[in-house]
Design a protein around this nucleic acid. Structure first.
Lengths: 334, 334
DNA sequence: CTGAAAGCGCTAACAG
DNA sequence: CTGTTAGCGCTTTCAG
């Protein structure tokens, strides 16, 4: 492994000059630059990242903090972050927080201590404390999928409220007369927005009643239980908008087990657009978030911040898309 | 951020002494040790990881190279690696290789350049070249789920051949009379072993014929296509052992679309035990690999190697388990 | 048992 | 435009 000193010697210049051509800062004579470049090539020199980190306090590493990579929502997002990171010469450390404040806290400390350049937060429990600490240490970060406009930082999310309206409208359009909602944990902002979107869209219908809203936990089991509870309470139900795809798949299962035909008797629409939704039978209609794009955008914003391009903190709200599939496909002619 | 110098000053000793108590090497008088410890605590000192890395060429970071985190097989494994890494004070960098030799190569270079302590390879395309380079640079690594006994390194995998036999036996036990196999890419060792296991188990039956083996690509679509092809060729088929769960889910879909009852007409058994397999309807019987354990074991072995505990290169072969579910559940009484 | 000092490999003033 | 020289914060001989 050649060092900068080897290059300097071979090129007949000082290490400072080599450093200059490496980092393209400061003036270097074209001729000497050429010599240095040649030396770099013949030695196959690569500047050592750790030494750079120590000297410059920048390591070319970003961290991705998410609740749990095993949750099918996150792999695609993680992939996106890694892709744009790699393209820009960054490396990514990934951290599962399980949404435990303590783990997150300790991770932040570890990351600071490693001179990480920035953090993408895709976790739901980012507390004001954490934000404060990161601000103190002046480490760039962007937050994925959490609304909280109050914490002043860049946020990437999608249109949850609007998406919920789209879902309800779609269910009505395919002929549903009474649409229920299974919602996620209300400390998770997107879950709340979707619930609000549902409420807003249905509150003026004569059939609407609050017991049409049933809590779930964003997981398969919760979706199953919620669907069962709903069908028991409202046997005349003919449409369910479910707060995320995982619960929707659970709901699908529960309905099938109850002998209820989907979509003929009850139509089901999910939210997220994870690839799982295509694997069920019937395939799940869903409001797709641009998951990959969200991750990619977050990473891009972060890198821009790191490299000092822009620092504006704004909320980037991406569009969602209705993906109609079998689970809401009714023969409307009749 | 306190530095080692601050601690030394406060404790009235030299930095060398502080370093000694930090790394518990070399002799330190109990009394001075106490002073140092106290100083460390009052200053809330944490040794800087980057500086340590530069000085000691060990960074407390391992890398996980896998084909694609979006593939549902990997998140759980990644989670396992991260869990044991964190427990041991390591941080993990994750790299999607897409099984492209070039990406892998460049990643290895990047990682070496960052003084990564070790690598977990969960990729299928590790070439002898790569192995050689890593050996040269003397960087510990362990390989996940690849057989190739020839490349001398630690390997963690599961019993693919035996698992295939278990699958076939199970299908026969539930009453299947003619069992086909959809196999994965043959450059992927586990896929090959499963195919061999199938062949071995069925070759002596009178109904056996090579056209019962149909290639797939380890993905959903491939499974669908393969199932269709098989049913066309062998309409009397009543059992399929599919080389992985993703393809099995595809096969399930294809069969449902063809109007074929699962498990009544055709029973289906997958391989892997990803959580997806519980989400289908009917739920998928599968040969479960201990995915989490495999990841965890790989990480543990790697860390042991890094820390010089053991260096023996052996193959750790974990047991697989049959998880009987709906897709093979037949009323055998009759 | 402890301290001084020489790096690890690079960046960034500061002179020239 | 280029070289000298301090560091970055820690580990590790080597004396003592």
């Amino acid at each position: 492994m050649a060092t900068i000193r080897d290059v300097a010697k071979l090129a007949g210049v000082s290490v400072a000059t080599v450093s200059r051509v490496l980092n393209r800062n400061g003036y270097v004579n074209d001729e000497t630059k050429r010599k240095v470049t040649r030396a770099i090539e013949t030695l196959q020199y690569e500047p050592n990242a750790v030494a750079r980190g120590l000297a410059g306090k920048r390591t070319g590493t970003i961290a991705l903090i998410l609740p749990d990579i095993s949750n099918p929502f996150f792999p695609e997002m993680a992939r996106a972050v890694e892709d744009v990171a790699r393209t820009n010469g960054y490396t990514v450390i990934f951290c599962n927080s399980d949404c435990e404040g303590e783990k997150e806290q300790s991770y932040i400390d570890i990351l600071l201590n490693r001179y990480i350049d920035g953090i993408v937060f895709a976790s739901h429990t980012l507390r004001p404390d954490d934000v404060k600490r990161m601000k103190q240490h002046n480490i760039p970060f962007v937050v994925l999928d959490r609304a909280r406009a109050d914490l002043e930082c860049s946020v990437v999310r999608s249109k949850n409220f609007e998406g919920a309206s789209m879902a309800v409208r779609h269910l009505l359009e395919v002929g549903c007369q009474k649409v229920a909602h299974i919602y996620g944990p209300q400390d998770v902002i997107p879950a709340r927005d979707r619930l609000l979107g549902y409420e807003q869209s249905v509150k003026d219908f004569h059939w609407y009643t609050p017991t049409l809203m049933e809590p779930g936990d964003f997981r398969l089991d919760g979706g199953m239980r919620a669907a069962e509870a709903l069908m028991e309470r409202h046997p005349d139900l003919d449409g369910i908008f479910v707060g995320n795809d995982l619960m929707a798949i659970g709901a699908l299962k529960a309905l099938l087990r109850l002998g209820i035909q989907v979509p003929e008797q009850v139509a089901v629409c999910g939210f997220d657009g994870i690839s799982l939704a295509e694997m069920t039978e019937p395939e799940l209609t869903t409001i797709a978030q641009p998951i990959y794009e969200m991750g990619a955008l977050a990473a891009e914003l972060l890198i821009k911040k790191i490299e000092g391009a822009v620092a504006e903190n704004r909320i980037h709200e991406l569009d969602v898309t209705l993906i109609p599939r079998k689970s809401t496909q009714r023969e409307t002619r009749s």
